[in-house]
Amino acid sequence: MGDVAILVEGLTKRFGDLQALAGIDFEVEVGTVFGLLGPNGAGKTTAIRILTTILHPDAGRAEVLGHDVVGDAESVRYRIGLAGQYAAVDRNLTGRENLRLIGRLAQVEPSEIPGRANELLQRFGLSEAADRPVRTYSGGMRRRLDVAAALVQRPPVLFLDEPTTGLDITGRNELWDMIRELVADGTTVLLTTQYLEEADRLAGRIAVIDRGKVIANDTPAGLKAQLGSTVIEIGMANEPSALSAKELLSRTLGDRVEREGSMVRLTADGAGTLMDVLRSLDAGGLGPASIAVREPSMDDVFLRLTGHHAEDTAVPEADGAGKARRKRGAA
């Protein structure tokens, strides 16, 4: 294990009745991507807000590059970049003006700011729109500017809170490439996401977070090994036949088989399992009405790890679905 860029120990945070973080721990190695995977309201944004010195934890501690986020917040702020869920850029400023403002406030040498702004505008495909007010930008452009703004000061540690939300597939792939480039240059990235695929493609390690707790912390390969690489969904004609199918398949496949209504779902290691499944169903005289084979989603990870679906526990403040929280001011 190399140097630790981010250290999180026993972090808790409560908003009124809601336990947003119930004691989380993890470490992120320098120069790697760490994914926090979970549904809305799991506590991902709360964790990011604490790590970026926006919010104080109730208990526990966290360090960024050896600096405590509470006791030495100022030093942390010189070392991080943050792109949030809300594309927090000024709509009345142009793209270029936004980058300059953030540069100045991040204490970048003024003579370096114009060049840096140009470089980022070009890299994020915003050169043409650079001198137009942001309110004329599309959602995707605003998102890209938000990420660019997090990079003006060349932060060694970058926090990305659901960076690809609202991006189309091209935009998402471009951003993924960008993140890989940054990491190749030695930047450490902590990103939150609701998509297993995104965490899988980018992260060296993934922490799955549910109701304020880390319920798994593993490499993507490790997580998938627990999970099976494929999900098979068998639609039966009705519930009774689905029940029989589940019973039949459980004999060989154990608790990897679940039933929901007339649907039987199981995780498989490969095509072999599918063959076995079809053979046993056929032998048992049960004909499926439909069969679907797909990549596992975050929901499947959740079902597997927790036994429940990845439901939105989105009570407002938990994960920054912000309006209610902000109305209440200092929560």
Binding site: T52, Y86, A87, L105
Partner: peptide, 10 residues
């Protein structure tokens, strides 16, 4: 959310 970003800046 702009103030949130400002608060993460030095």
């Amino acid at each position: 959310g702009l103030l949130e970003r400002f608060r993460s800046l030095p």
